[in-house]
Design a protein around this nucleic acid. Structure first.
Lengths: 320, 320
DNA sequence: CTCGTCTTGGCAACCGGTTGCAAGAACCTT
DNA sequence: AAGGTTCTTGCAACCGGTTGCCAAGACGAG
């Protein structure tokens, strides 16, 4: 059907290797011949078959990007940043969604192996051990997970959690609910770790939870019942669900309970009340992850990006 | 590095073809030999190289999915539905985002060619002519675009627009602004076409616009100035931006102006006021697109899915 | 015991390119 | 004019599998 390198070679009476060189090493072929080949190629609509080329060169010039849930508005900016950065490096990014399922995640990685030059693994749900094993077959850069010897882009969640807790303490909150995320989430662990170190606060942990609005909605009754005056939620989606759930029980935010999320997604900015949140550097992370993959020959550089507290309307003084 | 079919063959003293058959035609190899091969393969951690296999078989068992803007909450449900459906058919879906740029779209399609068995083209921005040309190299299913002889999944936008206009007319609105989308959008054209047929209404067209909140925000002043009492927006994102922009000018929705969007995305349900919208069958479309790609040998079946008006809080009686 | 049939597995060509090697041509040098 | 360079191009092996064809061996029937 589509023209191959042989068709082009035949069309202009030259060996296939010459055609091949015309595209991948133009300086090695006589300008006159080159233009003859290019003319014939253009004429037949020839495009090099990237998969076939990859077979011998070992490079596909594309990379995979795996996320747990593409519906989470946190990811699209990261994805777009990665795609843009990759495009600037002559690479293409293929995205896939695991539906929060570690088995699907593994299967997708296996599928990507040999079809991409590396995989950006964002907020993985697989165990470190499994990731290390899979890393034997394809280079990784992990985002929001620390694995020894593996290049990683981390967001300083602990710092963000600390800022958030200080903010709440400053508003007079002492009893604070911590609504964590799914099992296998490094982010969730970091948050809990940072919270556990905070002195003088009475923390109640809830989890694991789905990292979605449904998850927030579901824990709302428990959170309301536990007597906390403020909540630190795993992410903005959970925070929004929580606010919705509290509203359904006629509990006002921030009047009766303060809520802080993580991520700084767009819907949080449009919500009433506008969400106070710890902004995560998603765009920078997407860019960095691509660069790390391209630079590191698998070497374990680790980049940590800062987070920032953004105070909006969902937090206020504790009731006295 | 990774084990190849040859390593396995050597390891258990059989020819590579036998190993190959063990995986792709197990019934042709003696059970005893087969288990020996499987053991060796497992031992060496051998995985067939999908790209190499595709070279001879011509099938990759993966498909591409191209969207204009992955940040638009309209797409993730469609993407997830497509991925789930594909997974059930032993296929994998690779997603890519064009950033609303036709050139990027073309480049991505070219990249996908030969690396996937087909491409789902969602709300493309390329011209029909260009799409037809590219279709010579890779099978397509287009979503929200009608192209002769090409399988398509359409959403009945005209019907939805009609419902929306009737709803507004019923509330006493006569002067209605139509805020359209980007150039090259079939959806936008359908909306305009349907609107133009509506009798007894005074329509003012605004466009083209970016199909985002920024786009809605930007036209808000013009819309406010045109004297319309209601707006039909290209999609929910534009509608939300519009509401935001109107609010900044102290124009209340729905008290002073009614707003209807298209898509029924999640943020629209959380917004205050909750958005009245025409729900698009994104999930069904994702599923159908996959099936169409797998069934049709490129034959031009067209599926049209119904839309539905969902009345919430952003529309109300016209001021008298 | 011989013949015919069925299983099994090796051989080799092929998919669409890439690339090291070498030969011939053209161009310089001295 | 001989010898040395530099260019240009063809040859053939190779990447990792798949598959049509064929021969050897197993097995059952007569």
């Amino acid at each position: 059907m589509a023209a191959t390198i042989k068709d082009v070679a035949r069309a202009c009476g030259v060996h296939v290797s010459t055609v091949s060189r015309t595209f991948s090493a133009p300086h090695l072929v006589n300008p006159a011949t080159r233009s003859r080949v290019l003319a014939a190629a253009d004429d037949l609509g020839y495009r090099p078959n990237r998969a076939a080329r990859a077979l011998t060169t070992g490079r596909t010039f594309n990379m995979g990007l795996i996320v747990a849930d593409i519906s989470n508005p946190f990811f699209p900016p990261l994805i777009k940043a990665a795609q843009a950065q990759a495009r600037g490096r002559d690479y293409h990014v293929f995205v896939a969604d695991t539906d929060e399922d570690p088995r699907v995640e593994e299967e997708l990685i296996r599928t990507f192996t040999k079809q991409v030059d590396g995989v950006l693994l964002c907020s993985p749900r697989l165990s470190n051990k499994m990731i290390e094993r899979l890393a034997e077959d394809v280079p990784f850069v992990v985002v929001n997970r620390r694995i020894k010897g593996m290049p990683a882009v981390l967001m300083n969640v602990a710092q963000g959690a600390k800022l958030a807790l200080e903010h709440l303490a400053g508003l007079g909150h002492h009893r604070i609910a911590l609504v964590s995320g799914p099992i296998g989430s490094w982010t969730s662990n970091e948050m809990q770790g940072a919270a556990a170190e905070a002195a003088g606060l009475d923390l109640i942990f809830f989890g694991p939870n789905q990292p979605t609005e449904a998850g927030g909605l579901a824990v709302a009754p428990e959170v309301a019942a536990c007597g906390a005056t403020a909540v630190l939620a795993y992410n903005d989606l959970v925070a929004l669900g929580l606010i919705e759930g509290l509203a359904a029980m006629e509990i006002g935010v921030p009047d009766q309970i303060s809520v802080i999320g993580f991520d700084d997604i767009l819907p949080g900015r449009l919500n009433r009340p506008k969400l106070t949140t710890v902004a995560m550097p998603a765009v920078a992370a997407g860019r960095m992850a691509v660069d790390l993959l391209l630079q590191s020959g698998g070497e374990g550089a680790t980049v940590t990006l800062d987070t920032a507290l953004i105070v909006r309307e969902s937090t206020g003084r504790a009731q006295t």
